[in-house]
Structures are given as structure tokens and as C-alpha cells.
Amino acid sequence: MSDRALAAQLEGYRLTTAEVHYYRPDAPSLLQLFVWQDYDLAPDFPVLLDFLDHWRREIAAALHSVRVAHPQLIGPAEWCAASDIFSIR
């Protein structure tokens, strides 16, 4: 693990994966898939939004859709231990 990755995780960043579907500039009827991964913060995803802004400005391919996977979005539900138990009869 790199120092950058460790520092990001200590600040609350988690590995985020995005499937970016876009129209091919040379064949606009075809969709292409690009997979992007970086450390990001849910639920705002500032790093992903910066990447998508860059895509819109600098890349000729028009975006179709983006699907995001992040540990906070797909992880198990949070739980806490009960301090009291009540019996209903």
C-alpha cells in the first residue's frame, strides 16, 4: 500500500469504483465502458466529481451513465449491541 493510499484511508477516504458508460466518438450508437478507481469520500464523492468534470471538459466522448460502488454504499448494515432486553407477553 502506498503512503498516499494509507493517508487517504486515515482521513476517511475509501476505495471507490465507478463504471463510466460513454458513447464512442467515432461510432455514437455504440457504448463503451471505462472503469475508474480512486480513494474518495461518500456520499459527496468530490474526487469522482472532479474526474467527471475533467471528462466533460477534455474528452470528446459523451457520458451515458455512471455506476458507483463504495464500501459505505454496499457494505453490511450498521448495528449496535442492545443494552436492554424487554419481553412482551
Rank of each mutant, 00 (worst) to 15 (best):
L15E: 00
W36A: 05
A18V: 02
F86Q: 14
L15G: 02
H54I: 13
H64N: 02
I85S: 10
F34L: 15
I59T: 06
L48K: 05
L30P: 06
P46F: 03
D40T: 00
M1Y: 15
D3A: 14
F51M: 05
P28I: 03
R24G: 11
A7I: 07
I88Y: 07
F45W: 04
W79K: 13
P25S: 04
M1Q: 09
T16C: 07
L6S: 14
Q37R: 06
A8V: 00
A42P: 03
A27G: 08
Y13V: 02
W55L: 03
F51Q: 03
F86T: 15
G75Q: 01
A82H: 10
P28H: 02
A62K: 09
A77L: 11
L41I: 07
W36E: 02
E11W: 09
Y39V: 00
L33V: 02
L49F: 15
L52W: 00
G75M: 02
T17K: 11
L30E: 13
R24D: 10
D44W: 02
L15K: 04
S83H: 02
E19Q: 14
F34K: 10
D50E: 13
R56D: 10
F51P: 02
W79D: 13
L15A: 04
D84L: 15
V35C: 03
T17D: 00
Y13G: 05
R67K: 11
G12H: 04
D84N: 14
P28E: 01
I85V: 14
R89P: 12
H64F: 07
V35S: 08
L30K: 13
V20G: 06
H64G: 01
R89T: 14
V47R: 06
I74E: 15
G75V: 00
L6V: 15
P25G: 01
L31S: 04
L30G: 11
V47G: 10
